[in-house]
Amino acid sequence: MPTITEVYNNIPCREGLTPDWGFSCLVEEAGLLFDTGERGDILLANMQALGIDPAAIRHLVLSHDHHDHIGGLKAVLARNPAIEVIVHDAFSAKTLSLVREYTDPRIVGEWAEIADGIAVTGPLGTAIPEQSLAITVSGGYLVVTGCAHPHISRIIEKVSEVGPVWGVIGGLHTVTGEDVEALAGVAHLSASHCTDRIGELAERYPASFRPGGVGQVHRI
């Protein structure tokens, strides 16, 4: 079962780590880093404090082309140029050019398996295309989002075409009534980073809600 450690988040959770606007987490068993936060120096410092070696990471998945999710990209690539970088086909030429200074990116346009038991949704949404992780767990899929710009209800709908959504971790940005209802069946809910109605979600779903923040560890 996966262990997910939040290495970058603007919400503080653990002493000895630096909170800063952005999001990044490590799926430990897969050696998979999801997003890189806003600043490379903070990302690397938090990794060091958590005992995470950037050179040991095998996969890097980027959710969308916003600086608070790709700002640490160059720092990671400089420490580990052999890493597999997975992006989607809506990333800018500037970001892709940065990746190509170190390695050839894997560009996906739809649902794709990227590691054992782990898939990406491919880009969803139109204004801000974004992809999420779908990790196989005993109850279905654990969805990991960067900002959920396409709305978490749409992401859950997409993943549900493949299998049931067991849990959700990450930023949910602007949460609508439809999004709130879509989270009703989720057994593990940890909304953080840019989510605008965290308190309401915690009150609505006290049995499933888990606080998120830099240093938080989710053992599923």
Rank of each mutant, 00 (worst) to 15 (best):
A56P: 08
I169S: 03
T5A: 09
A45Q: 15
G171I: 01
G146V: 14
V61E: 02
G199F: 07
L50V: 03
D20E: 09
P150D: 13
S92L: 06
E161L: 12
A134W: 15
I52D: 13
Y102P: 13
Y102H: 13
I220N: 00
P19N: 11
C13F: 15
G213F: 06
P206L: 00
I135T: 14
I107M: 04
L98K: 11
A55H: 08
D104M: 04
S153N: 15
G16D: 09
V144L: 15
E15N: 10
I114V: 14
P206T: 01
M47A: 07
L33I: 07
A49S: 12
A75V: 15
E181T: 06
A182T: 07
A82S: 11
A115P: 03
S208Y: 03
E28T: 11
I156Y: 14
G163S: 05
A115F: 07
V137E: 12
H193M: 01
P2G: 11
L26M: 05
V87M: 14
G199P: 08
R219L: 01
E28D: 11
H151E: 15
S160F: 08
I198D: 01
G40S: 10
V186L: 04
G37D: 06
M47T: 07
D89A: 07
E181F: 00
S24R: 09
S24C: 08
P129F: 08
P2Y: 05
E6C: 11
C194V: 06
P150G: 13
T121G: 10
L201E: 06
A82H: 09
T176C: 09
A182K: 04
V108E: 12
L77D: 10
D65V: 03
T176S: 15
L17V: 10
